[in-house]
């Protein structure tokens, strides 16, 4: 029987991702990984794209993982786990493996939206039985906060520096969750660690579906967001409440919003505590801040329509 999704019960499960990892104090990503694995009730094999999570969780012979885990490169976490899954299927047929082993790939936004995208797209199209999880912190954090296609409009990064020439990143984010859903895969979803129950239910659902699954999970980074070490969960909650990061799933092509904010907050509430948006609150940048809000409103309206149409 599956462990009830109650914290008291879940706390009795052994850690699969352990302490001693060296991600920054207050990083959002370890909590995301912990929640995904708490929700997982099967033996898992994990591949990890290069990035903060990978670099800091396995240093020399010290690993924070208590399950088979493989890192090969930055651009191929999906292809790597697809290969493992294919081998597993062959061994399973020959009776050399137990049933019901699950396969998860973790990648950062740089490793997923950009550099590992071809590998991810291919693995989904080949219909591997796997769950790809992007922990989205909105930049290439491990190498010093370079912009990625997940970096939000207006954000200050080292390659979209806010100053006299430009007011931070000039382009809005790429909507990767929608792009993955457009692959026609059986399950694509967006989640946030602040809404842990919603996140865990999505992971559970994904594991019960055969074929390729994709989840995009927001993972605040206090170094890159220029925020505090104690606000990762608070910011991921504000991301949902402002509709910057809507919680929804697309199952067999049907879109469902899984948690609607009671009252949609202005996106400024999510942005204000983050130093990467500081310049947007200075005189002269009102128009850009307004454009950020309009982009959020437009996307949210579209989601509501798609949700209602189902």
């Amino acid at each position: 029987m599956a462990t009830e999704l109650k914290l008291k019960e879940l706390s009795k499960k052994p850690d699969i991702f352990c302490h001693g990892h060296r991600m920054c104090s207050g990083c959002g990503a370890p909590t995301v990984v912990k929640m995904v694995l708490l929700a997982t009730e099967y033996p898992v094999v994990i591949s990890n794209a290069t990035g903060c999570l990978e670099v800091s969780s396995c240093i020399q012979d010290l690993t924070a993982w208590k399950t088979p885990w493989i890192h090969s490169a930055f651009e191929n976490a999906a292809a790597t786990i697809a290969g493992v899954e294919t081998m597993y299927k062959s061994l399973l047929k020959r009776g050399k493996m137990p049933e019901n082993v699950k396969f998860i790939a973790f990648g950062g936004d740089g490793g997923t939206y950009d550099i590992g995208f071809q590998s991810l797209s291919g693995a989904m199209e080949r219909w591997h039985d796997m769950l790809y999880i992007c922990y989205d912190n909105g930049a290439y954090m491990n190498t010093g906060i370079q912009r990625s296609s997940a970096t939000p409009l207006g954000a200050d990064t080292t390659t979209s520096p806010a100053g006299s020439a430009i007011p931070g990143k000039l382009q809005p984010r790429k909507d990767l969750t929608k792009i993955m859903a457009a692959h026609g895969i059986p399950y694509a979803a967006q989640a946030s660690p602040s809404h842990w129950m919603d996140l865990m239910k999505k992971v559970r659902k994904a594991h019960e579906i055969k074929g390729p699954k994709f989840m995009n999970i927001i993972a605040p980074c206090n170094r890159g967001w220029r925020s505090q070490t104690d606000d990762s969960i608070l910011l991921s909650r504000l991301a949902v409440e402002t509709c910057y990061w809507p919680l929804y799933e697309v199952e067999d092509g049907k879109l469902k919003i899984t948690s609607k904010p009671k009252e949609k907050k202005p996106v400024a509430e999510f942005m204000k505590p983050q130093g990467r948006f500081k310049h947007l609150f200075a005189p002269g940048n009102e128009a850009l801040l307004e454009r950020v809000q309009q982009e959020i409103d437009k996307n949210w309206e579209r989601l509501l329509k798609e949700d209602a149409a189902e």
Binding site: D15, C18, H19, G20, H21, R22, S25, S57, C58, I59, D61, L62, T63, A64, W65, K66, T67
Partner: peptide, 17 residues
């Protein structure tokens, strides 16, 4: 290859605090 699962437990991060 790392053969000891969870060996990061030997690295105490409490001193960062």
């Amino acid at each position: 290859v790392v053969l000891e699962a969870g060996s990061s437990e030997k690295f105490k991060t409490g001193s960062w605090r």
